[in-house]
Design a protein around this nucleic acid. Structure first.
Lengths: 230, 230
DNA sequence: AGCCGAGTATGGTCAGACCATACTCCAGGG
DNA sequence: CCCTGGAGTATGGTCTGACCATACTCGGCT
């Protein structure tokens, strides 16, 4: 039953045409797509089919729709792959088609890479220090939810400091999909002192440009956070 | 105009309810969702809204729809995150919101991790050797397209041998999104002998369980494949 | 000049119809 | 008894046309 050559559906044709138009017309983020009715007439499909295609593009973070009139209305090209990635991971975890172990192993890979490259990047010291800010906020956190929120911000800041937007996006998605588990883990831990110590060590290693120490520090940190997996 | 709490749209409500049902009823891959008409009635929305929600889930690789009747018809829970990831990356590249450099750097991270873990995995020697098969197929390839097809299969096989399905899925997506660039690169290279030598070295290192050599080999391989980026 | 309301373009939603597909079931023939 | 073919039907796929909600645009009035 594999090679099912199902006739392409109408909305798939719309997807192809829109993507082609993006490529050929050199459309960029911020540009507008034609209205649903206009697109439907151009492609000779119903508005419902156009809407299904737009929904797909919206899911993929490529367009954003806004009702009303004027320059901000209609389907506008954007680039927000984060929520799509997050949804994808969250649902895969929910369907048990990915194990928490696999997600955490992947996270370790990305954390190590990010820390190494962030430490090696000369731009890090100059930026407003999102990492230090997150550490301060974790200090003040009253609940596990709050703590995890700023913990996510801390680790995402590392990934962003690596300078690679794809890696940063994957990190955001991983942490977003794991949020629930992270909160449970923090609650089970009780004391967050060890984690905070790790955070300071990671931060110090990165800002001082010591890549090897940064990698070592994040590795130790994840071992503390998920002792049952090591 | 920022925090506009836009009233949730009908299909978003459907998404929430379906996801909730998946979690609460413990639905697994292979289980069926209610039909579109039935779902519409249960949630008090139109069938069009249900369809938009299903389209989103299909995009995320969570359901697969099949017309007709019988146990295989209707919306079935699946888990195919690959095409969603691929589309996401391809469109992000098309919109220039990701640079090729970022994608290739990410690929290098994953290749190194995969090679290391594949070499350390005891199961590798036992499996039907997809890597060796891919190398043979590349040998016989007449065109750049064919070569790249089997090259992708080779590298995906390494990622799968690492035992981490998430990493393997990301690898498939990366290579799928980069397919076009890879073909151009191979055509520009002309001779694929160096690449094939690399492949054999990688394969030998992994099957012999030498993780360090495997990592070194994939690093050198990517440097050969993308000389302009190093 | 400034304000306010009508007009209008846009997405959001719905109801209902019809088509295409593919299984189910049963009658009839072998 | 089994097999075969056709009617029945449940499912997704698509279209049409309508109406609502939103938010800008424009013109006239103050």
């Amino acid at each position: 039953m594999a090679g099912r050559a199902r006739r392409t559906r109408a909305f798939e044709e719309v997807l192809l045409q829109v993507e082609r138009r993006i490529a050929e017309d050199g459309l960029r983020v911020g540009d507008r797509l034609p209205g649903e009715r206009q697109l439907a007439e151009q492609l000779q499909v119903s508005r419902a089919s156009v809407r299904e295609a737009l929904r797909v593009l919206e899911t993929l973070g490529v367009v954003s729709s806004q009702a009303g009139r004027g320059p901000d209305a209609g389907a506008i090209l954007t680039s927000r792959p984060d929520s799509a990635l997050t949804d994808l991971l969250r649902l895969s975890l929910g369907l048990s088609s990915l194990s928490l172990r696999e997600v955490i192993d992947t996270r370790l890979m990305i954390e190590r890479w990010s820390a190494e490259h962030a430490a090696a990047s000369p731009a890090v010291a100059a930026e407003p220090d999102a990492m230090a800010e997150a550490i301060r906020a974790m200090e003040a956190a009253a609940t596990a939810e709050e703590f995890v929120e700023h913990d996510i911000a801390f680790h995402v800041a590392i990934a962003e400091a690596s300078g690679n937007r794809l890696v940063a996006a994957v990190m955001r998605a991983l942490r977003g999909a794991m949020r629930r588990y992270a909160i449970e883990a923090v609650e089970g831990l009780g004391d967050t002192g060890a984690l905070q110590g790790d955070h300071r060590r990671i931060h110090a290693a990165i800002t001082s440009g010591d890549a090897a120490a940064a990698v070592e520090a994040v590795t130790a940190h994840l071992a503390h956070a998920y002792p049952e997996l090591f």
